[in-house]
Amino acid sequence: MRRWLTVFFVGGSIAYRGLFNWIRPAMYIPTMLGSPLFQLIFFTKLGQFAQAQSRDFYIVGNSVQVCAMSSVYGMTMAVANERWFGTLGPLLASPANRAAVFLGRGMPVLANGLLVSAFTFVAGTLLLGFRPGLAAVPALALVVVVTVVSCTAFGMLLGSIGLRAKDFFFAANLAYFLMLLFCGVNIPLDELPGWMSAVGRCLPLTHGIAAAREVAAGASLLHVWGLVLTELGIAAAYAAAGLALFRVLEHESRRSAVLDAY
C-alpha cells in the first residue's frame, strides 16, 4: 500500500513536471491564466450583448469550465506524451501498479485545475462585479472541487485515447470547445435541442456548473446534493473507463504491437 501511495504521489508529480508541456512560466501564465481570463470576459460580454442570461450565469459557467484548461489539456498531455517522448516502453516494462501510475498523474492536474478556476472566479469578482455571499464560498469551493475531479477523470479517458490516436491534441481541443456548447456553460441546457442536452448530461461539468450556479445564488449544499453526487458518479465512470482503456491498450500492445511507436 505504501508503494502504491508513493507511486501515486511522488511518481505522479515527477511525471507531471516531465510531461506537461506548459509548465514553464512563459507558457503557464498565458495559457493557464491569460486564456481563461479573456474567455471569461469574452463570454460575459457576449452574453450581455445578446441579452440572454444574467451576468452571473456566464461568470460561474466559464469560471468552472476553465478548469478544463488543466484537466483536459494537462491530463491528456500527462498520459499521451509518454508516446511522444518515447518513454512508454520503459514505463510499460516496469512492474509498477498501473492504477497508481495512471491515477497519480491526475493529482497535480487536479490541483492546477482548482487554481485556474479559483483565479478566474477572483477575476470575475474584481473585474466583472461577481458578488456571491461570503456564506456561499465554502459550498461553492466544494462544488468546484468535485467538478474539477470529474473533468480530470474525463481527461484521463482522453489521455488514454491519445496514447493510441495519432493526433491527441486535436481531440483535446475539440473536447474543450464542445464543452462550451454542450455543458450549459453559456447556454442553458433546456434551450438546446433534446439530443444535445442529453449528450451534455453525460459529460462532466454539466451538473457541477448547475450546482455551482445555485450555490452561488445562495442555495445550500443540501439543496444541490443530487447534482453533486451525479457529478461524482460521472467522475468515477470516466476514471474507470480511462484506466480500463489504458489496460486494454497495454494488453493489445503486447499482443499486436499497437503502441509500438515508442
Binding site: L46, G47, A50, Q51, A52, Q53, F177, L178, L180, L181, N186, I187, P188, E191, L192
Partner: peptide, 13 residues
C-alpha cells in the same frame, strides 16, 4: 462551434 454557441445565445436573448 463558436458560431453555434453565439446563435443559441442570440436566439435566447
Amino acid at each position: 462551434i463558436f458560431a453555434t454557441v453565439a446563435f443559441y445565445m442570440f436566439r435566447s436573448g
